[in-house]
Design a protein around this nucleic acid. Structure first.
Lengths: 328, 328
DNA sequence: ATGAAAGCGCTAACAC
DNA sequence: GTGTTAGCGCTTTCAT
């Protein structure tokens, strides 16, 4: 009496509709070679039984990649949701589904998560901070969102950090700043790209930069506040701070305000990323804007290139754009 | 000569390892009844061939739900990423994968998206704004994140908007405000709950509220700015504005500032949601904080309850908590 | 237009 | 310990 609770299969439908089960298949797949009446009847029965085709059985018979894995470090960081949105939208347009995973803890956890995750998807896109560049074994297409050196079967969509940093530094110099500082985030996935570019850019302009004028911070607002205090304690002469990203820039602004400094008059602050957040604080953040949705879309494009058989690694680049608002 | 490019199957491994393909199955499934040497050899061959088991074939044989569908209206709205994070984390802990889709356009688009999406997942969680409460046909467990009246095979995790609104109104009254206004967002999925609760709460306190002191807004900052100007043009006597959520509250604050009003002295502003955003603007937003991660986690809990066979609908509730900062 | 049979990649039952 | 046989739910020949 208690219903078996089993999901009805194509055969259940066939039995109930008094036809062979291939006929059912024809009906639900909208094939031409079937009597319209039969078709309608079958469809009705199917509906009534609550029949839904098994995606697994289907995928077995007609194998085509359909699921994209997406890894992001932290959805709480407003940068990433937009990338995710870009991937999802773009993937949806191509008929992909997107499996999202977020915030793998340490290197070991990340490696493990990746192993199991990779088994469930047909391609992988994302940030792999801790992974030491060798997604061995998992031979599905992989598109790195944070790395520079792709490997076979592995593409990358990169942000041209160097160009961005240089544009930012140029802007600061144009405004007359000569004593600069920087808040870096070594725990991020940028592998000191921003820091190096910053140092190099200043060197190229012949501007001195004390080694301890680059201070490392957690990737959070309070962390950046602390780091900024450190920086300004050491170097009160600094008139402009290059922040690792908008989130840390918010921390820099808060710390500056806390010290009674006016932004940008006493201390200019430059962000990176171009988050909506930056427009809303006081003063609105001058920043290097990254088109995060596009980043995601480009990644999906790379997945498809890889899947289409292009074997050689490629790196697509996105250049940040300086958006001048009020903080610098 | 050109490799078939076909993914190696268990049989390919068997052939290469000179064993039957079930032995391969034993090896990769870590079954006890197999000679350690054989196992190692098989595993080596598998590795070398780049073999990966087919999740579809596996799922066919051992059917267990594994994929959760999650729909959110808009990842750009900072409210949702946190809910997503809550769902993902909680789902991951139970071995689920999460398929995320975002921003279905109109009602028709949403219905269509849902149909196809539902075919790909084993359970569905999310916001279904446009859907007229009848996920007919898709008989998988559904957990509504925005609705009140669940249906069979359908649970809901709701925010107790009424309690939140009342706490907020009480706070405003405690601060001496008697002329209140509200910015509502009728396009959202709250179905005028906030508006109704607001009106009712004021009525219960015997406070008059002109009908046009509740003005409808798009769910965006500029939209809220426009709406606020409308409100204050009509009712300059208003001393406190109840905003639909933190995002619109930001717009209210901006509009107030634009009119030369001090917040909260001349015009108090109360938000809803408790976004990080609200802490960062000037002045920091007083708001009704919702634990968004927990919302997501609860939804996953409901999915599991449903899957475990609990048929009767249930509604889990989450009550917003008043966080007093500076805007009200 | 419909039915029968094969087979997708895999695990589980049962031999040996 | 290993191989043989079924069968998961479905689509595709191939007959009829």
């Amino acid at each position: 009496m208690a219903a078996p609770a089993r999901r009805p299969t194509i055969k259940d439908v066939a039995r109930a509709a008094q036809v062979s089960y291939q006929t059912v298949s024809r009906a639900i797949n909208d094939k031409p070679e079937i009597d319209p009446d039969t078709k309608r009847r079958v469809l009705d029965v199917a509906e009534q039984l609550g029949y839904r085709p098994s995606r697994h059985a289907r995928a077995l018979v007609k194998p085509r990649p359909s699921t994209l894995g997406l890894t992001v470090p932290d959805l709480t960081n407003p940068f990433f949701p937009e990338v995710v949105a870009g991937v999802i939208d773009s993937a949806a347009a191509s008929g992909w589904q997107v499996n999202v995973v977020s915030g793998a803890g340490g290197p070991a956890a990340e490696a493990e998560l990746l192993r199991s995750f990779a088994a469930e998807v047909d391609a992988l896109v994302g940030y792999f901070n801790h992974l030491d560049r060798s997604p061995e074994g998992l031979d599905i297409p992989v598109v790195l969102l944070d790395a520079e050196v792709p490997m076979p079967r592995c593409a990358a969509v990169a942000v041209n950090v160097d160009a961005g940093v240089r544009a930012g530094v140029q802007h600061l110099l144009d405004r007359g700043h000569r004593r600069l500082g920087m808040i870096d985030c070594s725990t991020s996935c940028d592998r000191h790209q921003r820091r190096k570019s910053f140092q190099q850019a200043l060197a190229d302009h012949g501007i001195a930069l004390p080694a301890d004028a680059v201070v490392d911070s957690e990737q959070s607002i309070p962390g950046a506040e602390r780091a900024t205090h450190q920086l300004l304690d050491r170097h009160p002469e600094v008139t402009a701070v290059f922040a690792f990203n908008d989130l840390t820039a918010v921390g820099v602004v808060r710390a500056a305000h806390a010290r009674g400094l006016r932004v940008p008059q006493d201390c200019a602050v430059l962000g990176f990323d171009g988050l909506m957040l930056g427009e809303l604080i006081t003063p609105p953040l001058t920043t290097l804007h990254i088109d995060k949705r596009r980043l995601g879309a480009l990644a999906v494009g790379e997945v498809e290139r890889l899947l289409a058989g292009e074997r050689e690694p490629a790196e697509v680049e996105l250049t940040p754009e300086l958006v001048v608002r009020e903080s610098a």
